[in-house]
């Protein structure tokens, strides 16, 4: 202790301020800078949503609105059938999330805790399918849903193809593998089968990772644009992201209205994320997945 105080004196630091404090300050400064970088686009979106068209497009830009144009929100809301877009988005997001969780939990459990012939090969095939870029399968999938299944321009066409996800299976499998096998042995001794063990032991121990899968899936559906645009034709089955596209033309963009629309479009996502972010971080940390 005496030698540490001596070292601090040699460095010119008052004895009362520990080394940890400097590190903490640096760490927080770095984190603060990163937070500003991440938060700035949101700040920009929100402030632009209140600006006039002129102010939104002027250069150099203004950091704070000179006048608040609250009417931008009403105008943006009136420019597209948002009620229908939101309804469709929530239906699709809930259906895909519930369906994907159900299939992924069962598949992940099978790959993590059950032994069956060809398990390794099947898992490799599953992972290999994840490596195929989405662009390569876009047209074949479109032909399939249009020519074979005849479900184009429905909510179903935005739900059914996404009821299984390799990423979610992989994420859940990684977590299920970390559950001690002694728990499975104990459950077996108590007479529990696989489904009972899954329901009573595995799932309660997997809440953070389940929330993570839920959030990633729901956000993915909420943000999807290309597939819905391709497979739908009418506003009555389209999601919110298609509405966002309606503020742009080839000759200009209504930035202030676009940002007002972006604000109310992302509001539900921000609320959900704020409530569940703790689970998201835990889930990602436990499975060792890095973004």
């Amino acid at each position: 202790m005496a030698s540490r105080a001596g070292a601090q004196r040699r460095l010119g630091r008052p004895a009362g301020i520990p080394r940890l404090r400097v590190r903490t300050v640096l760490k927080h400064l770095t984190l603060g800078a990163v937070a500003v970088v991440i938060a700035f686009p949101f700040y920009w979106m929100l402030t632009t949503a209140f600006k006039s068209f002129f102010e939104a497009t002027t250069f150099p830009p203004t950091l704070f609105p000179q006048e608040f144009h609250f009417e931008n929100f009403a105008t943006a809301w009136g420019d597209a059938p948002w009620v229908g877009f939101f309804r469709n988005t929530f239906i699709i997001a809930i259906a895909v999330t519930v369906g994907e969780l159900a299939t992924s939990i069962l598949a992940a459990y099978a790959f993590a805790r059950m032994n069956f012939k060809g398990k390794g090969v099947m898992f490799m095939i599953l992972l290999a399918s994840y490596m195929i870029p989405g662009e390569a399968t876009l047209i074949p999938n479109f032909v399939l849903v249009t020519k074979v299944l005849h479900i184009q321009n429905t909510l179903a066409v935005q739900i059914i193809p996404f009821l299984a996800s390799v990423f979610s299976i992989f994420l859940l499998r990684q977590h299920f593998l970390s559950i001690p096998s002694e728990l499975a042995d104990a459950a077996t001794v108590d007479g529990a089968g696989h489904l009972r063990f899954l329901r009573s032991v595995v799932l309660p121990l997997s809440v953070p990772v389940l929330v993570t899968v839920t959030l990633i899936t729901a956000l993915g559906v909420y943000d999807s644009f290309q597939w819905p645009l391709l497979v739908t034709n009418t506003d009555d089955v389209r999601p919110v992201q298609i509405g966002m596209a309606q503020f742009r033309t080839e000759f200009g963009a209504q930035y202030h209205l676009e940002m007002a629309a972006a604000t109310f479009v992302i509001a539900p996502v921000v609320v959900v994320f704020l409530f569940l972010q703790r689970y998201l971080i835990q889930g990602v940390a436990r499975t060792g997945i890095r973004g």
Binding site: I139, T146, K147, L230
Partner: peptide, 12 residues
């Protein structure tokens, strides 16, 4: 344009 190319493939 991309949607039309896909629609040609699907006959849609």
């Amino acid at each position: 344009y991309q949607k039309n190319l896909s629609a040609i493939q699907a006959g849609a």
